[in-house]
Amino acid sequence: MLKVRDQRDFWSGILFMAFGCAGLWFGRNYAIGTAARMGPGYFPMMMSLALLGIGGFILARSLVAGSDTIERIAFWPQLQVLAAILAFGLLIERVGLAVSVAAVILISGFSAQGLRWHELIALALVMAAVCVGLFVHLLGQPIPVWVR
């Protein structure tokens, strides 16, 4: 039974190989051509093969050498950050800038250590006003402020 000695290298290897495979698979219909007349598939194929090869090497090496482990991951805060960004993306064209900004603040700051809820709401209101003022009025970007 093989043992993973280096966790970071192990997962890096997997990641690179996954990208290499994806590159080959989704690029399978692009014409490859010859070295003298490269088709649109030539360069991506070379890159994908390189990724597969190097990824494989890193993966193999992680089984025989090294001792790195992945540092602690604070799961919930990270999820909040990603959820906040996604919420902004989903809301911006439906409800406009002001509400979307407030949503980002509320979602990302929710249950943050030492941040009381009234502080959070105040921060959301202030940032919404600042963003509307800065991006829409000062920089003149055509971002919808309110959408009904």
Binding site: V81, A84, I85, F88, G89, L97, S100, V101, V104, I105, S108, G109, A112, Q113, G114, L115, E119, L123, M127, C131, F135, I143
Partner: peptide
């Protein structure tokens, strides 16, 4: 804890 939601907003906008 106050800075990072603000930075996040800047990144989104």
């Amino acid at each position: 804890r106050i800075l990072f939601p603000c930075i996040l907003v800047l990144c989104c906008v």
